[in-house]
């Protein structure tokens, strides 16, 4: 097999390979680019989800107006609901402006970490406002419905709304926790890189 390359020479090359591997085994990997890509992926996901929520929120404005008027709910209730959705969309877009995923690939990480911390804070503030608002909104919704004549269609609407509200709340809180966890991970990675 090794007729053309002398046995000693082959052995020497194999020894050199072992030397090389032995030297490398002692080394630790410092891979900033890979960590930056991982952070980019996480923040992109957060931003993508925000965009989806904004789109759903915007689409819900005309839908809620239509459905509420069909069931004879007051204009004030529909208007407040629409206003809330609009504010939620604008707030989500505004709060997301503090972070740009692509900046995590090559820009100053300390500046990005400040932006991420700000986004986390804004998300938390929105939750603090959103949950009490939803509770009040749900009470108002129930009062509006209580004044209506109850038939099968109203019953269906009420049960549908109740399920939607509970599911929305659970999904919303889950999404909030996931987002905050992802942002925490990115902050931790930045800390590790900039330590």
């Amino acid at each position: 097999m090794d007729a053309n390359v002398g046995i000693n020479e082959l052995e020497e090359m194999r020894q050199q390979v072992s030397l090389l591997k032995g030297k490398l085994e002692k080394e630790q990997i410092i891979n900033e680019k890979l960590i930056r890509r991982s952070m980019y992926g996480k923040v992109s996901k957060v931003k993508r989800k925000s965009m989806i929520l904004c789109t759903v929120g915007l689409l819900n404005i005309p839908c809620s107006f239509y459905v509420f008027s069909k069931f004879g709910l007051s204009f004030a209730f529909s208007a407040v609901t629409a206003l809330f959705l609009l504010v939620a969309v604008i707030y989500t877009m505004w709060s997301g402006n503090s972070v740009r995923a692509d900046y995590l690939l090559d820009k100053d990480l300390l500046e990005q970490s400040r932006g991420i911390a700000l986004l986390k804070r804004r998300n938390f503030l929105w939750l603090r406002f959103g949950i009490p608002f939803i509770c009040i909104w749900a009470g108002w919704f129930a009062t509006e419905l209580a004044m209506k004549e109850w038939n099968e269609v109203t019953m269906g609407f009420v049960s549908g709304s109740f399920v939607g509200l509970v599911a929305g709340l659970i999904l919303g809180i889950q999404n909030y926790r996931k987002t905050q966890r992802r942002l925490d991970e990115v902050l931790q990675q930045i800390e590790e890189l900039t330590r």
Binding site: M13, Q15, Q16, V17, L19, L20, G22, K23, L24, E27, Q28, I29, I30, N31, E32, K33, D106
Partner: peptide, 25 residues
Amino acid sequence: DTVPLTMDIDLFEDKDEDSKQIRRL
């Protein structure tokens, strides 16, 4: 683009005997 080191080792610059062998390879 220029990027940070991946491992804290420079096989092209190290001058010890092992590195010389590795350079021969």
